[in-house]
Design a protein around this nucleic acid. Structure first.
Length: 621
DNA sequence: GCCGTTTTCGGCCCGACTGTTTTCAGTCG
């Protein structure tokens, strides 16, 4: 029986599309493969369950006879001959080269044709030797750019976006929890702290009957997790594996009475733990992963010894990124309390003042999912979204939101058929009509009483190289919300991008600055912009910043979020939803907002609808 | 390759920008 998951099938299709691109295949054909990959990945059921009825595959949008046959081959044999054929004439390392900013299929093909070279290391050597510039339309500047991009790529490789890591952690934890003797299972480490990228996963398990043969059986069961390609280490209490994608997972067993202490210890960060242990020492304690104990001369373990509480009553700890068992956090809380500290949210544990604040009782009341009243950045079929205004509105109602803003792309993002003035005005009419209907009250799709939803009209407008916005002022003036983003030439020097943003901030129509510090994608180096200057310009002009929760990008850094708080510049935490289910991806942006110590008052979309409108209109005066 | 049909072919994905050019190819979104 084949175990290929949808994600794996989608990956093979995408890689094949990449190889086809290097091979110079027809671009529409390539696009079909990519669209099919999207369809496979977002399909709700595992395709392997449909292997018996190949015809059902054809019901998926973007999958026709050709790709259905490819999928059947993969499901039945685990192989994909079309891809293998391409790999005979092309090198698999080319797929990595495509991740280098500025290196595209044409250049990669040209390098191969001339030098028969395809790995990152080899291309780097060519560039250093000044041999890349011998290729047509390549010069010294381009060569230097590629060298820089390789450095940036190296810095990011080996780390995984929070969204990917979180999804994998969810699957891995589910597998552990399926074992009867496992009473507690939680993710610790940088994932729990909500870092934008995660190096590896630390999973902790515990259970009173989870020992001896039961523990060994549980570990064995875990090894059935799809995608494991290597077992690094396998001891009595620890298991280390590597997944296909390269992510490493460590599973650690802890005695039940140490679970809280272990969770604290393995959540880190290291700097936080060092500071905390220092504080413990001063107070006469020793803190390690097994608990907090008095140093000699004193008895009575202070905390971490038996987390007893089977209370079941929920103390409702502040919502973290991954819902760890409430009782585990309660055990953690004991440790902090014993050290004279309030429990510190994982996102804050960076030794960045959180311990002092906890001691003084001045920890922020962090913004949480429950505070968010609406989403102010979403796309529809008018540009590159997958759903209509009404479908997005229904999804928002189902989440209990009070308002949304429809913000499709403007014209210069031509690939997605962005809106020009004429189409924006048509879209505006549709949004106003939908608003008129939904503000009267609607029953959420899942049931429940009728509730009103405000639908604001907006645009994600492109900030051009000279700082102009790419829609006419008289059209922008009719919109409730204008988000300015840069969609091209992020490889401009930081000073040029800063200048570009500053010009846009002066534009009276702009409310929100999207991608304010440069995108943090796996392929990209975060841009070092002059953030202080940007912030003071925002403050002066009443422009706010966006924290974009889209899974492949976290634009604002935590230190920047914290500077927003200090400077009094509001942020909006939006999902950039292209599909109704993207509205549920809020945690990625929230984690960053929380790491930036943001409180509800710092966040635009925690405001009630009336106050939100006031805040937006204030910009106009 | 897929899709839709005015159904078995023709349309689908294009503008901004850079570095290389001297008119435009390649990359990105």
């Amino acid at each position: 029986m084949n175990t290929m998951e949808n994600r794996e099938l989608a990956r093979l299709l995408r890689e094949t599309a990449d190889l086809m691109e290097i091979a110079g295949a027809d671009s529409f054909r390539i696009r079909s493969y990519r669209r099919a990959a999207d369809a496979v990945e977002t399909y709700s059921q595992p395709l392997r369950t449909m292997a018996a009825e190949p015809k059902k595959l054809l019901e998926l949008p973007g999958i026709g006879k050709g790709i259905a046959a490819h999928l059947m081959e993969m499901l039945e044999t685990g192989r994909f001959s079309e891809r293998e054929k391409l790999l005979e004439s092309h090198h698999p390392a080319m797929l990595q080269l495509l991740q280098i900013q500025g290196l595209g299929p044409k250049t990669i093909a040209a390098i191969w044709a001339k030098h028969h070279v395809a790995t990152v290391d080899e291309v780097e050597a060519l560039a250093r030797a000044g041999q890349l510039r011998e290729l047509p339309r390549m010069g010294e500047k381009a060569e230097q750019k590629i060298l820089k991009a390789i450095t940036a790529w190296r810095a990011m490789s080996g780390r995984f976006l929070l969204s990917e890591a979180r999804r994998t952690a969810g699957e891995a934890l589910a597998r552990l929890r399926a074992v009867a003797e496992v009473e507690q299972a939680a993710a610790a480490g940088s994932l729990r702290r909500g870092r934008e990228t995660v190096g590896d996963l630390d999973l902790l398990v515990s259970g009173r009957r989870l020992q001896g043969a039961a523990l060994a059986a549980a570990m064995e069961h875990f090894l059935g997790l799809p995608g494991i390609v290597e077992i690094y280490g396998r001891g009595e209490t620890k298991l280390s594996v590597r997944l296909h994608a390269g992510l490493q997972i460590d599973v650690r067993w802890l005695p039940p009475e140490s679970f809280g202490a272990g969770l604290q210890y393995f959540t880190g960060s290291q700097a936080h733990n060092i500071a905390l242990r220092g504080r413990a020492l001063k107070a006469g304690y020793r803190l390690n992963e097994y608990g907090l104990s008095r140093l000699e001369g004193s008895e009575a373990p202070a905390a971490g010894g038996r987390s007893s509480s089977r209370s079941g009553g929920k103390a409702a700890p502040p919502a973290g990124l991954l819902p760890a068992a409430a009782e585990a956090e309660a055990a953690e809380e004991k440790i902090y309390r014993s050290l004279g500290l309030a429990w510190i949210a994982p996102e804050l544990r960076e030794d960045a003042g959180e311990i002092e604040a906890a001691a003084a009782g001045r920890l922020p009341r962090l913004v949480s999912e429950a505070d968010i009243r609406g989403d102010l950045h979403m796309h529809t079929v008018a540009s590159d979204g997958r759903a209509t205004i009404e479908e997005m509105a229904d999804a928002a109602l189902a989440r209990g939101y009070e308002y949304i803003a429809i913000t499709d792309h403007s014209a210069s993002l031509a690939m997605v058929q962005g809106l020009d003035e004429r189409r924006m005005l048509q879209q505006l009419k549709r949004i106003r009509a939908a608003d008129a209907s939904y503000r009267q009250g609607r029953r959420p799709p899942g049931g429940g009483p009728e509730r009103p939803l405000r639908i604001l009209a907006g645009i994600e407008v492109d900030i051009l190289a000279d700082g102009r916005l790419d829609l006419a002022d008289d059209v922008l003036a009719q919109l409730d919300l204008v988000i300015g983003s840069i969609h091209s030439r992020f490889d401009q020097p930081p000073a040029a991008v800063t200048e570009r943003l500053l010009r846009a901030i002066e534009h009276p129509a702009l409310h929100l600055l999207g991608h304010p510090t440069g995108r943090l994608l796996l392929r990209r180096e975060p841009l070092a912009l002059d953030f202080e200057t940007i912030l003071s310009a925002c403050l002066q002009h009443g422009v706010m910043l966006e924290i974009n929760s889209a899974p492949d990008r976290l634009d604002l850094h935590d230190r920047h979020a914290r500077r927003c708080r200090e400077a009094g510049v509001r942020v909006a935490i939006n999902t950039d939803a292209h599909h109704p289910h993207h509205l549920g991806l809020l945690p990625y942006g929230l984690a960053m907002a929380r790491r930036g110590w943001l409180e509800p008052g710092n966040v635009l979309n925690t405001l009630p609808a009336d106050e939100l409108m006031q805040a937006l209109n204030a910009r106009r005066k």
